[in-house]
Computed example of a mutant assay.
Amino acid sequence: MKRQPLRLAILEATRILDQAGVASPRTDAELIAAHVLGVERGRLPLVPLVDPSVVEAIGQLVSQRAKRVPLQHLTGWAALGDITVSVGTGVFVPRPETELLLEWGVKLLKGREYPVVVDLCTGSGALALAVAHARPDAVVYAVDNDTNALAWARHNADARTAAGDTPIRLYSGDVTDPTVFAELDGLVDLVLCNPPYVPEGTPVPPEVADHDPPQAVFAAEGGIDVIRHVVATAARLLRPGGGVAIEHDDTHGAAVPALLRARRVLTDVRDHPDLTGRPRFVTALRG
């Protein structure tokens, strides 16, 4: 059978995804094609012609994406920092916005030997594993209260250890428990958290509504219920000079920094925008 131009297959995929309301149709079409071909997205121009079977495989995944199945569920992975983690049903998919929070945390650790890091609400383990990859000397703890998420995190942690990264210490626990990681009180250099923070009842895209676990997305009290507990936990875990970074909803640009400022031991509270300029995460240092 005659080989076909990959460019035309990507154009058709882009048209279908655009009509389906996918936010980034061209990007998703190219990533699907790259996944099917087993190449990096940037190398697609080096593959001008493909077999009909490749076009068919791309079309099958595009039809799933047009139904708003998350791209990461179709490819089986999501990226954060310099690593990828496996994701799928039952675990929250890491978002690009969290890259900035990760960068802040890794920068804070510069010059500190053998830092102790805690990732609260770890989900897939992406944040904890990205830090462990960036800082092989770090002792990284991660916790979640969801058994499905922990299964994904354990799978990802095992994969990263097999790839040569320093193992993380993964625990089942709840950030609303005032004794979680009590043995680390006053010893932690960095606390990171991407908690559930979307206010209950907020309309969200089908990729989130139908595929992300609700308990990893939504929170009571206008979205800050879990964050309240995270702030309290961070305040007791951090050593002097340690830092905390917490992701939040774009409606929380005033409310969440106020929670941190209310803690006398926390100083230098700052809010940071995401890639689109919206308020997205807050940071503070332990005085």
Rank of each mutant, 00 (worst) to 15 (best):
P45L: 13
G242K: 06
P257L: 03
P52V: 01
R7T: 15
A153Q: 07
P136W: 06
P70L: 13
I83A: 10
R7D: 15
D119N: 06
Q19V: 11
K67T: 12
L71R: 10
L109E: 10
D210R: 12
L108F: 04
D158Q: 14
A130G: 00
L275K: 14
D51C: 00
V175F: 01
H73E: 11
P45T: 14
L184D: 04
D177I: 07
E99F: 13
L109Y: 14
H272G: 09
A149T: 04
D249Q: 02
G123I: 01
F218V: 00
V85E: 02
E200C: 11
F281Q: 02
R112C: 02
A126M: 04
D165W: 13
N148C: 11
G186E: 07
G123N: 05
H229Y: 14
V191I: 05
V217M: 14
L266P: 09
D274P: 05
E183Y: 08
S124H: 00
Q72I: 07
G76R: 04
L17R: 10
V191C: 08
V265K: 15
I168V: 13
V117T: 13
Y141G: 12
R278C: 02
V117D: 07
V69K: 10
L259C: 12
I168F: 02
L192N: 14
G76F: 01
D212I: 01
I168W: 01
A9S: 11
L275W: 11
D225A: 15
F92N: 03
T202D: 07
H248A: 10
A284R: 08
I227Q: 10
P136G: 09
L8K: 15
H248K: 04
G201Q: 09
G111W: 10
D18A: 15
V91Q: 02
V226D: 13
D177P: 00
D250T: 10
D210I: 00
L259E: 07
L37K: 07
T251F: 07
A29R: 08
D146S: 13
F92K: 01
A234W: 06
L101H: 13
L190N: 00
W152D: 09
L37M: 02
W152K: 03
L187E: 11
V180L: 15
T75D: 13
E97L: 07
V208A: 04
T122L: 08
E200T: 09
D146N: 15
V256H: 03
T179G: 08
R169A: 02
L237F: 05
